[in-house]
Design a protein around this nucleic acid. Structure first.
Lengths: 175, 175
DNA sequence: CTGTAAGTTCAGTCAATACAGAAATTACAG
DNA sequence: CTGTAATTTCTGTATTGACTGAACTTACAG
């Protein structure tokens, strides 16, 4: 069992707190924070002991984190147990999370909006007001989704370069 | 009381569902969806009846939505009751939400990260691994926060123009 | 003032989710 | 095979947070 340094503890607790605000289970977020800080892959028991939660809880959390694609299993020679490590590149990590959220939440929402608009157009309800609003929302989400995909498709290094574009972006938009 | 069209109902229910996934109370999201679709401002009682929830619940939800800055009170001549309307510009709306989330969640996280890094630098813990990770996270969030602020500061029209920049952005990054 | 409508706050209830511990399953060593 | 370690699944409990209805406050009309 790792004894957490006060700093690590502080970060892990805060990360867990933030998780809950974004609809992510506190333990899941804590496990992720722990793996993010850990210099080496950890096995379930280690995680459970360190965070003082049940092994079963850790098991579920790890499964979820793998579902998000930000934690993966690795194996250590001479050890039967699964070990887990978190991606260390923050840019990559947030990209992955955005991708998942898009897939799970934006895409289904777009489908619903599409259906709504279609139903309003075919049906005899001439509710122009509602239709306009739903279309606006649909167009917005579509644009965001496309924009995101473009960004995601860039080579990892280039994404980091975005940060330096601010000045140039302004000029582009100014004209 | 408004009788909701099937389409409006579908959208409102879905919006509520999405809310929960992003850490937003279902009722709050539903109230927002209803106001977003409504061609005219509504008062609390109307909302409560339409969504079939308690008035008190609506009151709380409206207060929260005002806190997010995406719903505001308006008054109707000859009517003592407060009426509420949602911002109709989706770009503006998401910008406002991002701003609030930044203020409430990103900024505090940055503060914590800053403290963590500082503590590791002053203390005799030579935990370079942890420090590096926390710094990387801090730098990432700082960059994102700054980038966001730049975008936010642009005139509303320009933001919409971002969507058309994809091709040009690629070239910029390619070089 | 007084009465009534509107809006908010509060305390208790209820439902959803998180969690622990046990049982079941899987994988492997001997 | 058999036994054991590792992991997952399941079931019941606990915690959290959402929601209601009632009490309370505020603002105004008469």
């Amino acid at each position: 069992m790792l004894a957490l340094s006060p700093v690590a503890q502080k970060f892990i607790l805060h990360w867990g707190e933030m998780g809950t605000r974004w609809g992510i289970n506190r333990t899941v977020a804590q496990v992720h924070a722990l793996l993010y800080l850990s210099p080496k892959p950890l096995h379930a028991e280690e995680i459970a002991k360190t965070l003082a939660v049940a092994r079963s809880n850790v098991s579920t959390s790890l499964r979820e984190l793998q579902g998000w694609g930000i934690v993966r299993v690795v194996h250590v020679l001479g050890d039967r147990r699964d070990h887990f490590e978190a991606g260390k590149d923050v840019w990559e990590m947030f990209g992955t999370i955005l991708e998942e959220r898009k897939r799970r939440e934006i895409d289904p929402t777009l489908r619903v909006l599409q259906e709504c608009v279609a139903e309003l157009e075919s049906g005899r309800e001439k509710d122009a007001e509602t239709r306009g609003r739903l279309q606006a929302m649909r167009d917005f989400l579509t644009t965001m989704a496309t924009l995101y995909e473009e960004v995601r498709r860039m080579p990892p290094g280039a994404i980091r370069g975005l940060a330096k574009l601010r000045g140039r972006m302004r000029k582009l938009l100014g004209k």
